[in-house]
Design a protein around this nucleic acid. Structure first.
Lengths: 363, 363
DNA sequence: CGACCGTGTGACAGCGCTGTCAAGAACTCG
DNA sequence: CGAGTTCTTGACAGCGCTGTCACACGGTCG
C-alpha cells in the first residue's frame, strides 16, 4: 500500500509535461514500469485479450489499481478501432422520455467503460444527415442510438447504411425489420388497454390518434380497432380524433369528442400528453373522472402520477430499451446480422379509468 | 468544384487503412495537400491562430470545405490541451430540469464545436469524487457543469479545486462566492411571488419548504418571510410545512396545512412538484382552486401547464443558465478569476392563484 | 547599411495508446 | 528427439493532430 503510494508520487514528479492545473495523469507506461512488463502487455490485460498468463495478468491488475490508472479515451480512440463513445440522437419534445432513455443507456455505458454523447437533431432540417455524418467523423462514435422520430428518417437511415455505421433504432414505426431494433409491441399494448376499458363496461369508446409520422401511432390505433372488433363493438369514426402527441392537440381532441351530447364514456389517447389534454378539457367542461368519463394514456410519463385523478396508462420499459440498445452496440451485436428485441410492456391502472356510467341512471 | 471532387475521390482511394465500414475520413493531411500548404498551416487556420496571411487562410478554408473536412476530436485532444468535451454532471430526479439544462448547454457546445458528455452521479455515494476524477482523467474534459445538489457537494468541490479543473456551478446554495457560478436571485423571486399573493388579498399564506440540502430552499423561505414582514403580516409557524421538493412531500404538506379548520387561503410551495402535491391533496379534500385555495410553485416545469388549474410559478431560465455555463467554460472564463452570473427570473401567473376568498361570505 | 524585430510558414517530435509482426518459450507428436 | 505448433511477450510504427522551434523574408532604426 504505502509502497505503491510512493510510486505514484514519484511517477507524478518524474513526468515533466503535466499541464499543471489538470488531474494527475498516470499513463500506461507508468503501469508497465510498475508491473515490470511492456506496455503492450498492459494493453492486453486491460482489453481482456487472450494469451496472457495468469501471473502477469494479476501483476498488471495490481499495478493499475495501485496507481489508479484510467486509460485515456482519446488515445484509445486514435490508436485503435473503438472510441468508447456512443451517441444518443434525438429530436423529441418529451423530456421525461429522453431522460429515461439516457438513464438506461448510461447505466450500460458506465458498466462497459463507455461514455454517452447526446446530440439533439432537428428532423425537419434538410441537413440532418450531414450533421450526423459530421458528428460521426469528429468523434468516431462506436454506435448510434436513434430514437423516434429520428429512427424513421429515411435520409438518416440511408446515410448510416451506406457508411456501415453501427446503430440501433428504438421504437421505430416503419421498416421495423430494417437495422437493429428495440421496441415493444405497440399494437398488443393498445389492444390490452382497450380490452381493459371494455371489461369496465365501456361500449362507447373514443380514440385520439398520435402523430402520423410516428409509426407507433398507427400500431396503437390498429390495436384499439382490433380489441373493439373482437368485442363486437362498433367504432364510430367521429369518435376517433386526430392528435399530435402534444398536450394542446389533446385539448383540441377533447373539445371535439366531449363538447357534444353524444359523447363517449371512455377515451383512449395515443400517449399521456394527449390524454392529459383530454383530461384538462374534461375538467373545463365540468366532467368528473372517472365518474363521467374514463381516460387512458400511453407512456407512463411522470406527470401521469401527478395529475388528479392519476392517469391509467401503458408503461414502456424505456430505460431498459435504451440499455439494451447500448448493450447491442457495445457487444457489437449490430455488426453481422441485425437483431430485433421485443420488450415487455405493462398496463398501469390508476384513478382516471373506472366502471362505465350506467346510461339509465344518468342524464 | 469538380476538380476538388476528383481530389476527394483520389484521396479516399489512396489512403489504404480505412476501416471499411466507417465514414470516410478526410484528414488534415488531405486538406494541406489540396491547399498546397503544410499541415501546420491548416491547423493554424482551423484554430484561428494569428499570423496567417489572408490568402493562405482562404485557400485552406476552401480546401477544407470542398473536402468536407472535420477535425478528429480524439487526435486534437491527444495532441493539444483541449478536448472539446464538456461534462454535465447531475444527480437530480427532475427530468425536465435536466433536459432544459442539456438543451441550453448543447446549443452553446454545438456553436463552439464542443460536445457534451452527460454523467449522472449519486451524490450520496462516498466515492462520488473518485468517480468524477476517474471520468476526468479518462476523457480529459475541458470543463464541468455542476447542477444542484452536486454543485454543493463538499468533496466534489474540494477535488475540483485541488486538481484545478474548470467548472461552473449552476444554482448553488451555499458558498455562492466559491468558483464560477450561474444562478438566479432565489430570495428576490420568492419575495415577488409572495407579494403577488398578498396583492391578491391573501393574508393567511402557508409555505412549504424545499429540500434542506438545497440552498435555494433557504433563500426562497427568506424571500417569503421578507415579503410577509414588509406587508405587516404575521407568519404562523404551523403554516410552514417541511418539504423535500417531491410530489409526495407536497401531498404530506398539503394534508398538514389543509386538513383542518383554520387553513391558509394561499400556499406557496418551494417548487412545482411540491405545489402539485399540495394541489392533489386539495383536490382530494374537495377544495376548488383558486376559489377556495391559491397555490403557487417555483420552477415552471412542463407539468405546471398541464394540470388543472394551471400552476402559477416562477420561471428560471434554466436553458440559458446552462448555455451561460458552457460559454464560460469554452471561453476559458473560469480560469483566472471566478465569475458569477445572476440571471433574470420571471413570475408566471396562471389559474391556480386568484383573489382571496372573502372570509365573511364563506364558512 | 548592418543589427534587430515581427510576420508567415514548415519540419519535426510526440500526445497515449493499439495493431502488426517477430521472436523466444513451452508444448505436442510421430 | 527434432520438427511443427501453440502460447506468451515485446519492439515498433503510427493513429491525426498540436506545440515547439527554426528559418526565410521584409521592414525598421540608429
Amino acid at each position: 500500500m504505502s509502497a505503491s503510494r510512493t510510486d505514484l508520487q514519484r511517477v507524478r514528479k518524474a513526468s515533466p509535461k503535466r499541464t499543471g492545473a489538470r488531474v494527475a495523469n498516470v499513463t500506461i507506461v507508468d503501469v508497465a514500469h510498475a508491473a515490470g512488463v511492456s506496455i503492450k502487455t498492459v494493453s492486453r490485460v486491460l482489453n481482456r485479450e487472450p494469451n496472457v498468463s495468469t501471473a502477469t495478468r494479476e501483476q498488471v491488475m495490481a499495478a493499475a489499481a495501485a496507481l489508479h490508472y484510467t486509460p485515456n479515451v482519446s488515445a484509445r480512440s486514435l490508436a485503435g478501432s473503438r472510441s468508447y463513445l456512443i451517441a444518443l440522437l434525438y429530436d423529441n419534445p418529451n423530456a421525461a422520455y429522453i431522460a429515461d432513455l439516457q438513464t438506461g443507456a448510461l447505466s450500460r455505458c458506465r458498466a462497459g467503460g463507455y461514455h454517452l454523447i447526446i446530440e439533439p437533431f432537428d428532423t425537419t432540417a434538410a441537413d440532418a444527415p450531414d450533421a450526423i455524418a459530421d458528428m460521426m467523423s469528429k468523434l468516431r462514435t462506436d454506435g448510434l442510438i436513434l430514437t423516434p422520430p429520428l429512427c424513421d428518417h429515411p435520409g438518416v437511415l440511408e446515410l448510416l447504411d451506406t457508411t456501415g455505421a453501427a446503430y440501433v433504432r428504438i421504437a421505430p414505426s416503419n421498416r421495423v425489420d430494417h437495422g437493429s431494433v428495440v421496441r415493444i409491441d405497440d399494437m398488443a399494448a393498445a389492444r390490452e388497454m382497450t380490452r381493459l376499458l371494455i371489461a369496465d363496461g365501456h361500449r362507447d369508446i373514443g380514440f385520439v390518434k398520435g402523430h402520423p409520422d410516428h409509426g407507433a401511432s398507427h400500431q396503437r390505433l390498429a390495436g384499439f380497432l382490433a380489441a373493439m372488433t373482437e368485442a363486437g363493438l362498433t367504432v364510430r369514426p367521429d369518435w376517433i380524433a386526430e392528435g399530435l402527441f402534444s398536450f394542446l392537440s389533446g385539448v383540441a381532441a377533447g373539445t371535439r369528442l366531449l363538447d357534444r351530447n353524444d359523447r363517449p364514456t371512455a377515451i383512449f389517447a395515443c400517449n399521456d400528453d394527449t390524454a392529459l389534454g383530454v383530461m384538462s378539457e374534461a375538467n373545463r367542461l365540468g366532467l368528473v373522472m372517472p365518474r363521467d368519463l374514463s381516460v387512458a394514456g400511453f407512456d407512463d410519463t411522470p406527470t401521469a402520477r401527478v395529475v388528479w385523478p392519476q392517469l391509467t396508462t401503458v408503461r414502456q420499459p424505456v430505460a431498459d430499451m435504451a440499455a439494451m440498445a447500448a448493450d447491442m452496440i457495445i457487444e457489437g451485436r449490430t455488426e453481422d446480422e441485425a437483431e430485433s428485441q421485443l420488450m415487455a410492456f405493462e398496463i398501469i391502472v390508476r384513478g382516471s379509468t373506472g366502471p362505465a356510467p350506467r346510461a339509465a341512471l344518468r342524464d
